[in-house]
Simulated assay, not measured.
Amino acid sequence: MALYKFNKFHLHLTDDQGWRIEIKKYPLLTERGAWRTFNNQDSACMRLAKENPDMAIDPAHIIERDGKQLYGGFYTQEEMKALVAYAADRHIDIIPEIDMPGHMMAAINQYNF
């Protein structure tokens, strides 16, 4: 990225569908808020993956809870520190986005802020 002067990386960490970063004070954000049921875009990817393995959903991002398959995941604080350090070594700044107050259904559903 830096070679082409793409030295800013905007990292979107929240959305209505999921919370993507560990906040230790609020564990439900990742225990529950980082996972969702499959939607029509996921189904389209799974259908396309039969012919194109690049479209496959990584099984590491699929869990089973309460009899349902859920999709999602999150970055731990240690993973984020490593990612920031990796990018910094390559002269790339990571700009995290936690979109508040909009796009907060993953958080609201867990804590009723």
Rank of each mutant, 00 (worst) to 15 (best):
D15V: 01
I108T: 09
A56M: 10
I92L: 06
H12E: 10
H103K: 11
D54N: 14
G67Y: 12
T76A: 06
G33P: 00
P96Y: 01
K24Y: 02
R65Q: 11
Y86K: 11
T14F: 01
K25S: 11
Y4Q: 09
Q110W: 00
A85K: 15
R65G: 01
K5E: 14
I108P: 00
D16C: 08
N112A: 09
L29Q: 02
E78M: 01
H91R: 15
G73A: 11
E51P: 00
M104E: 04
A44H: 05
I98E: 03
G72P: 08
A106W: 00
N39I: 03
E79D: 04
G18H: 01
G73M: 12
H103C: 14
R36A: 05
G72R: 07
Q69L: 15
I92H: 06
N109E: 12
I98R: 00
F74L: 08
E97D: 10
T30V: 15
P59V: 05
F38N: 00
R47E: 14
A44M: 08
M46Y: 04
I23F: 12
L3G: 09
Q17E: 13
I108Q: 11
L13F: 04
T14Q: 12
M55D: 03
F9L: 13
Q41L: 08
N109I: 00
E78Q: 13
C45S: 12
D66V: 06
M105N: 11
K24G: 09
A88V: 05
W35I: 04
P59G: 05
T76L: 06
D89E: 15
N112D: 13
Q17N: 13
R90Q: 14
I95K: 10
W35T: 00
E64M: 13
H91T: 13
